[in-house]
């Protein structure tokens, strides 16, 4: 049954995934080529110096991509469920209802995790040849909140989509916008290091939110 649920999610996501992969990985290649050009013109030592003096990691243009990918994945997965209240079909299937939602979410989170891992591998693969380990770690740690934002905004978007009333959707949207802002408050490298455990806790909490929307759907809440 889990295989069948994943199959349905694959059908919904399969048009998005290549687009998301091209966008995320394409922009990553672009960002890394910019670093490569700086190395070509001014040498690696100059890049190191810029990274330290100007508090940059050169991959800042990528910061919003994981968040956008997470939002897009949730939209393509969960809007079809709420269109014509199709969620009734899904919840009627002989599978635990909360488990169903979590398996659906796992499909989206899994796809995002693969995408973000590919992006991380590209960044690390390029930078560790060029930079000191500390500087590579600095770039990677700077990007971790961006990936966390992607995974968290995926769950929050699912929460909004599955909510059965527009009034609450607007409220949840405002709350989600506040949470999203939190992930992008600082451009300083590793500014979020101390917050990473809290981000992990927030993501774990966000796993429960779509279940809340489904409970409201089952109660028959409507505008």
């Amino acid at each position: 049954m889990i295989k069948a649920i994943l199959y349905k999610e694959w059908i919904k996501m399969r048009a998005l995934l290549p687009v998301a992969a091209v966008a995320v990985l394409g922009f990553t290649v672009y960002a890394l080529l910019r670093v490569e050009r700086a190395v070509d013109f001014r040498g690696a030592a100059h890049v190191w110096q810029i990274m330290i003096d100007k508090e940059t990691v050169f991959i800042e243009p990528l910061r919003l991509l994981p968040a956008l990918a997470g939002i897009a994945a949730a939209l393509v997965q969960f809007i079809p469920e709420m269109s014509q209240r199709r969620l009734k079909l899904t919840l009627h299937l002989p599978f635990p209802q909360r488990g169903m939602i979590l398996v659906m979410a796992a499909a989206g989170l899994g796809a995002l995790a693969v995408l973000f891992a590919a992006q991380a591998a590209m960044v690390w693969g390029y930078m560790h040849r060029l930079l000191a380990p500390e500087l590579t770690a600095r770039a990677m740690m700077t990007a971790v909140p961006w990936w966390a934002a992607g995974l968290t905004l995926y769950m929050l978007t699912a929460w909004i989509c599955l909510e059965p009333t527009w009034r609450r959707r607007v409220l949840y949207l405002l709350m989600t916008a506040g949470v999203a802002r939190m992930f992008f408050l600082s451009d300083v490298p590793r500014a979020y290091d101390g917050m990473l455990p809290w981000m992990a806790a927030l993501w774990l909490f966000s796993l429960l939110l779509p279940l809340l929307s489904v409970d409201r759907f089952k109660q028959g809440c409507q505008d």
Binding site: Y7, K88, L89
Partner: peptide, 25 residues
């Protein structure tokens, strides 16, 4: 359960939807 409006997973094909449902019953 047949839902009002004969709602189904309309983004699937005839073959895909059969394959999907058959795993549950």
């Amino acid at each position: 359960l047949l839902i009002e409006g004969h709602v189904q997973y309309s983004y699937m094909t005839i073959a895909q939807i059969e394959r999907f449902y058959s795993r549950f019953y």
